[in-house]
Amino acid sequence: MEFTVLQVLWYFLIFLLIAGYFVLDGFDLGAGVLMPFLAKNEEERDIVRRSIGPVWDGNEVWLLTAGGALFAAFAPAYATTFSGFYLAIMLVLFGLIIRAVAIEYAHRDVKWRSFWNVLFVIGSLLPALLFGVAVGNIYAGIPMDAGGNYTGVPLLGLVTPFTLLCGLLGLAMFCAAGAGWICLKAPVGSDLRERALGMRRIMQVVAIVLFAAISAFGHFLIQPDMVASLGALRWVCAILFGVAMVASLAIGAKGDNDIVPFICQSVAAVALVFLLASSMFPNFVVATPDSIGPAISLANASAGDLTLAWMTGIACIGVPLVLAYHVIVYRTFRGRLEFE
């Protein structure tokens, strides 16, 4: 199969946007999931909320950008996954909606605060768990009709041992990043930081174990058809993931350095996304053996080169701007928070 340069470029750019989302919104989703386990009173919950308050919205835009770019560059992949995983995607959506409002309203709406706190946790948990399940499905394959529409059982048809493991790995990675972020932002010596430190270790170990299990499962039972020329990239990503996770655990073991373990955790997250990309290339959605329609891939899902060329131009202007905004806001709000 021959692909144009722009098609291959955009295949990996989509995964880069997803990686950006996984790293950035990863920690604030994780912080939301872990809030009931880490923060035991309203003061501590306030620290959790304020630690992500100025940045979560910008982080989430990475998801909207990835979604928009997928729509623009590979519309059939966007259409098949979003409509095929309908109820799961809707649960993700409801999660993102209630979470967005909950985090903004919790501090200014004293009467309903406990209600908003619950919504914030549920709203963080739903996307954090379901993204991995969705990825498991596109990797393991789904049945489709000739038009590329999902023909399996709604929602429950998407839950298999493999996809569930993928969901849990995603959740563990989100939580590890979330705990790592709380470690960075919580006051030194506070109970909140101590709990976050312990949680970060647990979640990282869980993530490594799940990664090993999924790799074995994926390798022996699913046996996907992988592009041979990307074998080296797959090894680099897998090793980078392992090294970064172990480094994060080792450097963070003493608990006197929070920034390096957080960066290592983020590097591992990026490695994981690119391991997925290099294992799936050139597919976006794999077809199961009983599928009537073929896999959704670069071959049958790409927008025209003129669209991709304009998208490249838009990205060349837009991405540096976005990175500049992020630098400004993360610099403005750097440093630890204090109890009020």
Binding site: V55, T65, A75, I314, A315, I328
Partner: peptide, 29 residues
């Protein structure tokens, strides 16, 4: 989406890149 993807998706992606990031990041400020 399949019918209009080549045209309709690009403004959505541009909206996220040029507008959503701008408003959400500075809303944080």
């Amino acid at each position: 989406s399949r019918f209009v993807g080549d045209i309709f998706g690009a403004p959505l992606a541009a909206e996220a890149l040029f507008a959503f990031f701008l408003e959400s990041v500075f809303l944080g400020v």
